[in-house]
Design a protein around this nucleic acid. Structure first.
Lengths: 262, 262
DNA sequence: TTGACCAAGCTGGTATACAATATCCATAAT
DNA sequence: ATTATGGATATTGTATACCAGCTTGGTCAA
């Protein structure tokens, strides 16, 4: 049966039937999506999540929830304190800057590798990512486009990394990029940043097309480190003000509990 | 419960200390140590570990074991297949090369940052790491010293990264370095590599002392990428031959299993 | 009125029981 | 004799029950 019969009718294109995609993975995905959906830095108070509440909402037992939370804790999205609860982590400005720095390091190397091993067609494909906003520079103004541009921006950087050919880079930066979503508001506070960003991207593509590995690596590094410097200057809102602990309000506890499940 | 007794043995104010360091963390540490201790690439067959066996050995229940295995799976040490068991991952040559490449990217940026922000005393402290083997170059020969040198080697690179001041770099590379331990045998197969490595390190320190960020970054990158190329050339043993345990045996079950794994 | 002490509830950690599924072997049929 | 099918077995995923500790709110005493 292992003979290489070229045409075997036994190979029915039957469903892959991944009935057991794993309940833990689903919970992990759901919780991660919920975390990304909420505006972490909008509310000043710590966001706590309750295991049992999640159990009810997702309709599963605590065990998969706990395992999913373990994964999320490893990924740096939540933090579990023994008997104090599980709260969504709020990255400090320094942590954000560090993440951007690591991102710059990885993507710079990715660009360096891409300059030599990527095909010309692949490099040319990079232009498709930014034409969408290159053709319409008027979009830079309203904040409603920020999210849209930010997504395209991340897509461009992801594409650079992908062209480097190191899959590990893609997987490692994916987590970083997810964290970046929370602070994308600050990345475009200055209007010229968006335009300058597009110009930088064009220069990077040009360097890649010229097969100038050193220049591509340098441009990517300077571009991303510029973002790091920008956050360093204007990202003070990240170091949140956990607000006055409790002013003289006797019902603060009740309010706290109410907010907890919000 | 029986509260009427007004005299309750009051809790001694003696700090129980880290009684609850978390049973999961201990299990995680133990299993990780066990994995690092065993020679993954020595045995040709897949190394499977059994949950209940671990439960008995560690004397705990399955829950903390499972959570520890979740963490280890996230870190890339083990892989869990739904109903097939948990086996220690055997990194392929490509994966190792990728890890080294990412390491080079991160450490290169770390050196670049260290060149400007590290104090002169900190840079000078780097020499302490390699003098131990710089003073006794005769040690390069026997393989018994490989492990020792490898540890000092990693300590040097960790120190570079630490001087960069980005804690995230340290934590990310720690996991990479743990994986590197498994393949440190191949890193020193050529005798001159050890000596050249020390020379490279000295050059890196010189660049840092000269505050030449670009040169430091380049030297670190070339040094580590040289290791990647070395593994690329001589690391074919990593792509192990799982070899058919049963040779020419037309067993239907074996063929079936082979087909399903493909 | 204010402070401390106690008690109860809530939260997470741990253990165990149950269910589902993959593997493997034995037996029967061709 | 060989193959296929069925069951036995083993292993993991999931759920639930129990336990320990922290928080918090109330009450009593000074």
């Amino acid at each position: 049966m292992s003979s290489p019969t070229p045409e075997m009718p036994r190979k029915l294109p039957i469903a892959p039937l991944h009935v057991s995609v794993g309940l833990r993975a689903q919970a992990c995905e759901a919780i991660r999506a919920a975390i990304m959906r909420m505006d972490i830095y909008g509310q000043p108070e710590e966001i706590r999540l309750d295991e049992r509440q999640l159990c009810q909402d997702l309709g599963v037992s605590r065990t998969p929830i706990r395992e999913a939370l373990s994964v999320l804790e490893q990924e740096g999205f939540v933090r579990s304190i023994p008997r104090r609860g599980i709260h969504v982590v709020r990255k400090s400005k320094r942590e954000i800057v560090e993440m951007i720095t690591v991102w710059a390091a990885i993507e710079s190397m990715g660009a360096r590798l891409a300059a030599t091993r990527a095909t010309t067609a692949e490099i040319a494909g990079l232009r498709h990512v930014l034409v969408a906003f290159d053709d319409d520079p008027a979009k830079g103004g309203p904040s409603g486009q920020i999210s849209e541009y930010s997504d395209a921006n991340m897509a461009f950087h992801k594409a650079i990394i992908r062209l480097g050919g190191i899959e590990l880079m893609a997987s490692m930066t994916d987590t970083l990029f997810i964290h970046m979503r929370a602070v994308r508001a600050v990345t475009m506070t200055q209007d010229n940043r968006a335009r300058r960003s597009v110009a930088d991207h064009r220069d990077i593509i040009a360097a890649l097309e010229a097969r100038d590995a050193g220049r591509a690596a340098r441009l990517v590094r300077e571009h991303t480190m510029g973002l790091a410097a920008h956050v360093e200057r204007h990202g003070d809102f990240l170091d949140a003000k956990p607000e006055a602990p409790k002013q003289a309000e006797p019902s603060a506890a009740a309010a706290e509990r109410q907010r907890r499940y919000a």
